[in-house]
């Protein structure tokens, strides 16, 4: 792999972002006739610089996954644009979109359904290469290199996905994303299905790969602690809109927006004493907000969407 970007990525946003989403609106057609379409993203703007991780955090129904899919060209864009390296990539035809596959890649949440169960790991990893016209011998060599990069033994290639654990499968998915040296990887909750200790090792791998290759991540997750750990910058989504963007440390420790505050206080910390304080503060804030809501009505609604 030709590692060009080394060193820690900069915290200030580069003048020309690698990926820029501008006022993006995504609508899905509603079921039934002549019903208005369902608007999932209501004018979202984000930027990601080369080698940077943008953490996208939100609860279910916030539209965070849809934003990732829109960047990948998998969601219907109603208006707004996605720029990549200065070119508009939203609304491209199928053929032009396919040409982007070497630049923008994906790692999905569910390591069980994101790998074709009937294909060997070799086939899974070489598929993107063969599509790009890489000769067989060269592709085979590249696959071995990829397995090594994600710390799987070379003989893993002969096996089927079902022979691997969740963490291992996620490594295979990461290897597939890396196969054509992309510059952006959309990571859709890539560690949410994993056990705690496995999650830690997969997060390490993400950081290591980024530092070595300079790839940028759009890291979608519902877990504030994961986002804090992996991101340079964080965007908080709610109801199809971005409510707060900023430096990772700032947003995840001293948030400005009331919703981010609520989100932060709701996440329990693994320390009984600190958690007791956090709970007390959350309940105080909730009471204050409830009182607020009673006096001036158009405050923030109390219950948000559930994940189920």
């Amino acid at each position: 792999m030709t590692a060009t970007m080394n060193g820690t990525p900069r915290k200030d946003v580069p003048a020309e972002p690698l990926l820029a989403v501008d006022d993006l609106v995504v609508e899905y057609p509603a079921k039934g006739w002549r019903r208005p379409p369902f608007r999932v993203l209501k004018g979202v703007s984000i930027t990601i610089g080369a080698g940077e991780t943008l953490g996208l955090v939100g609860e279910s129904g916030s539209g965070k996954t849809t934003l990732g899919r829109a960047v990948l060209g998998l969601a219907p864009v109603a208006s707004g644009t996605v720029h990549y390296a200065g070119k508009v990539i939203s609304g491209l035809g199928a053929k032009e979109r396919r040409a982007l596959s070497s630049d923008i890649q994906v790692v999905f949440q569910d390591p069980y359904t994101s790998l074709n169960p009937a294909m060997t790991v070799n086939d899974i990893l070489s598929e993107p290469l063969r599509v790009a016209g890489t000769p067989r011998a060269e592709a085979e060599k590249r696959v071995r290199d990829l397995l090594d990069q994600v710390r799987l033994p070379a003989d893993a290639g002969e096996r089927l996905p079902r022979e691997f654990s969740g963490g291992q499968r996620q490594r295979i998915a990461i290897a597939r994303a890396l196969s054509r040296d992309p510059r952006v990887i959309v990571c859709d909750e890539p560690v949410s299905a994993l056990d705690l200790s496995t999650q830690a090792r997969v997060l390490d791998l993400f950081v290591e790969i980024q530092e070595r290759t300079g790839v940028a991540y759009l890291f979608v997750t519902h877990d504030l602690s994961v986002v804090r750990h992996i991101s340079h910058r964080v965007a908080v989504m709610r109801g199809g809109e971005i409510v707060e963007t900023g430096d990772a440390a700032t947003v995840t420790t001293t948030p400005q927006h009331p919703y981010t505050k609520r989100l932060l206080l709701a996440a329990p910390v693994p320390d009984p004493a600190r958690q007791a304080e956090r709970r007390a503060e959350r309940q105080r804030l909730a009471a204050a907000m409830a009182a607020d809501a009673r006096t001036n009505t158009p405050a923030i609604a109390s219950t948000s969407g559930d994940r189920a």
Binding site: L72, L74, A94, R98, S101, D110, L115, E127, P128, R176
Partner: peptide, 22 residues
């Protein structure tokens, strides 16, 4: 609706190839 078909699409496979391979 399986994610691996989405992944194949992102990998640049054409529809014909996705149907044949996956």
């Amino acid at each position: 609706e399986e994610l691996y078909v989405d992944a194949a699409r992102v990998s640049g496979l054409s529809d014909a190839r996705i149907i044949r391979r996956h």
